[in-house]
Design a protein around this nucleic acid. Structure first.
Length: 715
RNA sequence: GGCGAGGUAGCUCAGUUGGUUAGAGCACAGGAUUCAUAACCCUGAGGUCACGAGUUCAAAUCUCGUUCUCGCUACCA
């Protein structure tokens, strides 16, 4: 197999709207880090880039929720995420950020090149513009009279009464729903990436070339997209947070690049920044065919890294990824990890609870790395349990790996005077030779598995080598052999030779373990070097499989434990914490919202002012839900019957993910009763239920504090 | 709802192109041992391979149907 000249490894850019959890770590960061450490140990030319993804609408929205600015949000989360990765041993060559000027420049250049080459489609349209709100109006923000049925409240995209699809231009007497004013026509442009032009390329590249060497989930998902027919995808957006279009681009004012377009370019700008910092040239890493590019991501990101970004790269003249080893998701204690439900263990939590504790230290980072690699969701979703975490540590890391290293060092001090004993070739047994061969074999297995991104299996082989060491020692039992005394009270020459050989091999095996475990557990590997009094350079991969890593006669440090046991109480604590967090989140919702309102009265962008008459147009009533059922073929919709006193109405509401139908029957709700009917999934909805959304995205009914008569007016 | 991936021992996971009694680690039980963090070592028990049909001399593996989980997507006034 031809070896690439250089490697460029990326991990998905974490979105800077909150802290990331250990599921993210296991999916996109840890595997990449293991792979990179392995390549670096081989002295390959490799750059490992990542950074915070800081654009997109969710950041300003998060800012609104936290009562602050978008800038403040990213400045808050970026450094914490960077530090979390460092604490857990994720050793990026650079952790960049997309808010950096260099990134903006790079993304603009990328856009410009594609635009200049005619690879983007521009659709220039006369769109309605609300002068008072100072923004273009999406179709649904425009109302007017339907040309088909003369209904006077038709939306820009569809008439609710006759069901006809419309464009805003067809509406008679259009009105902006933002301000109530008559919008003006203004010319606007948007740029699109015509994915559909590249279907043949994708078919060849993914479904033929990579049908076998990419993971089946990845190929399957791509096939699904390609077969479904690709559509042009808007590259630009009317938004004020993001990478602005280049000045030179006509009609680009007030627009930014859509976040999906700018974020992956972040890999390139990060590489540029790395090159600047290290006085290197970034270009070969993205443009030379001898570079192997690998994207590590979670399965939710497949389409971007396998379909969209490759098209961008191809058009821009860059290399394509060699592989995209997407991981599945990791569940936690029987349920999906979820930020909104607070069912998660953040990297920060782990750092606080295990690494930064008195009995913690960086060794504890390795413990997490070990367990996450062991249960990595490489082919299907997997499950993190604290019990599993404890077991993995106590009965594998401690009992097998740590114990072997410890007993080797202890025995060496007791039976060989604290020095690496010589190897007596004439006294070698078959068993000795077998173990030596096993060490070489282990190296080859680990190597082969890592090249295939099978990290779990590779790690198992390393642990298995430690297990082999334990078995070997058990069979040779030097602590028994030492009792074969000669007349002077010292062990016989044969006995000492056997002991020397055993310990010599065990110690070389320890040194090999350090080399092999290094990509997975870097802190542990370094501690082992310390104990064996060798420099970190011994960890170079070329040393794996060799039997002369430790020189005969060399004295080693007194043994120290590599890992400590994790107590039942610590596990119980974590489980408690997990449950408490869920309860707290639910309890804190009410108080938290109200305090935020007080602190920051300008909680959200307040809509433009309206006169009382405008408000009075809205007819709000109290109603009572008398029945609820799920709408067929729709995940989010519930069909409700609401008693309004004077009549009972059918209302369709998009709340199915938040409430079970049986739980909301009998609830009082506030209803907009004079809203134009609208058909959803074939059911006509006559009104709208008012809901409040809290900072966690959870919905709450707006209802009177005491049960009152249905139909009561609200004002 | 459409599409994609998955459902294998108590737990976490392997099972390449269909081929003898379905594997590993942990946990569990019994034994042995003491150099070692009550660690190690040996042995053992434990599975209707989600369910139901079909193809085949032969199915965990191929086909169809059912069901459950996850992801993408549509539905959110």
């Amino acid at each position: 197999m031809k070896q690439p000249k250089r490697y460029l490894i990326t991990s998905a850019l974490p979105y800077a709207n909150g802290l990331k959890h250990i599921g993210h770590l296991a999916g996109a960061y840890l595997p990449a880090d293991i792979y990179v450490r392995y390549l670096k140990a081989q002295k390959r030319d490799v750059v490992f880039v990542c950074g915070s993804d800081e654009h997109g609408t969710a950041i300003p929205i998060q800012a609104t929720k936290e009562g602050t600015t978008a800038r403040a949000i990213i400045d808050k989360y970026h450094p914490i995420m960077k530090q979390n990765f460092k604490d857990l041993g994720i050793d990026f060559d650079i952790y960049h950020r997309t808010s950096d000027p260099l990134h903006h420049e790079t993304a603009k250049e990328f856009f410009t090149k594609l635009n200049d080459n005619g690879d983007l489609e521009i659709k220039e349209t006369e769109q309605y513009f609300d002068e008072q709100a100072n923004s273009f109006l999406a179709d649904r923000y425009i109302k007017g009279t339907c040309p088909n049925c003369s209904y006077d409240s038709a939306y820009g995209d569809q008439c609710e009464r006759c069901g006809k699809s419309l464009s805003p231009d067809e509406l008679i007497n259009p009105v902006s729903t933002l301000s109530g004013n008559k919008p003006i026509k203004k010319s606007t442009k948007h740029w699109y990436l015509p994915l559909n032009r590249h279907e043949d390329f994708l078919r060849d590249w993914i479904l033929k070339e990579h049908a076998n060497d990419w993971r089946s989930t990845v190929v399957g998902q791509c096939k699904s997209w390609i077969d479904g027919g690709l559509q042009p995808r808007a590259v630009t957006r009317d938004l004020d947070w993001g990478v602005t279009l280049p000045e030179s681009v006509d009609g680009g004012k007030g627009k930014v690049l859509y976040v999906w377009f700018d974020a992956p370019v972040g890999y390139i700008s990060a590489t540029k920044q790395w090159a600047l910092n290290n006085d290197k040239d970034w270009k070969p890493y993205w443009q030379d065919k001898d570079t192997k590019l690998v994207h590590f991501i979670g399965k939710d990101n497949i389409v971007f890294h396998c379909i969209i970004f490759p098209i961008m790269l191809k058009l821009h003249g860059d290399i394509l990824p060699d592989n995209v080893p997407a991981n599945e998701f990791m569940n936690l204690e029987g349920d999906k990890m979820s930020t909104s439900r607070n069912w998660k263990v953040e990297m920060q939590d782990y750092v606080d609870d295990f690494i930064n504790k008195e009995n913690g230290g960086s060794q504890m980072a390795d413990v997490l790395r070990y367990y996450l690699t062991l249960i990595a969701p490489e082919t299907k979703d997997s499950e993190f349990t604290w019990q599993g975490f404890q077991d993995a540590n106590n009965s594998e890391l401690v009992s097998i790996f740590g114990n072997f290293v410890n007993r080797s060092l202890v025995l060496m001090h007791k039976l060989c005077k604290g020095k690496v004993p010589p190897l007596h070739a004439e006294a070698l047994t078959d068993l000795d030779r077998t173990v030596v061969a096993d060490i070489q074999a282990a190296k080859e297995k680990v190597e082969a598995l890592l090249e295939q991104y099978k990290f779990r299996d590779a790690l198992f082989e390393v642990i298995n080598l430690a297990r082999t060491g334990n078995q070997y020692m058990q069979k040779k039992e030097p602590w028994i052999v030492v009792k074969q005394l000669s007349e002077d009270g010292q062990p016989t020459a044969e006995a000492q030779a056997s002991i020397d050989n055993t310990l010599h091999i065990c110690l070389q095996l320890c040194a090999n373990l350090a080399v092999l475990i290094n990509p997975f557990l870097p802190f542990t590997a370094r501690k082992m070097c310390y104990l064996m009094k060798v420099v970190d350079k011994m960890l170079d991969w070329e040393n794996a499989g060799k039997m002369k890593l430790l020189s005969t006669g060399y004295s080693l440090r007194p043994p120290e434990l590599l890992f400590r046991k994790i107590e039942d109480s610590e596990i119980a604590e974590q489980l408690e914490k997990l449950k408490a967090a869920v309860v707290n989140r639910e309890a804190s919702v009410v108080s938290k919202d109200s305090t935020m309102e007080e602190i920051n009265p300008k909680f959200a962008d307040v809509k433009s002012e309206i006169v009382f008459d405008d408000f009075a147009k809205i007819d709000l009533r109290v109603g009572k839900i008398i029945s609820a059922e799920k709408v067929e073929k729709a995940d989010k919709l519930l069909k409700l019957s609401v008693d309004l006193g004077f009549e009972t109405r059918t209302i369709v509401s998009g709340i199915a993910l938040h409430f079970k139908p049986e739980d909301i029957v009998g609830k009082q709700v506030t209803v907009v009763v004079n809203l134009a009917p609208r058909k959803m999934r074939g059911i006509e909805s006559n009104g709208m239920i008012l809901m409040a959304e809290d900072a966690n995205g959870k919905l709450h009914f707006m209802n009177p504090e005491a049960e009152i008569n249905p139909g009561a007016g609200v004002s």
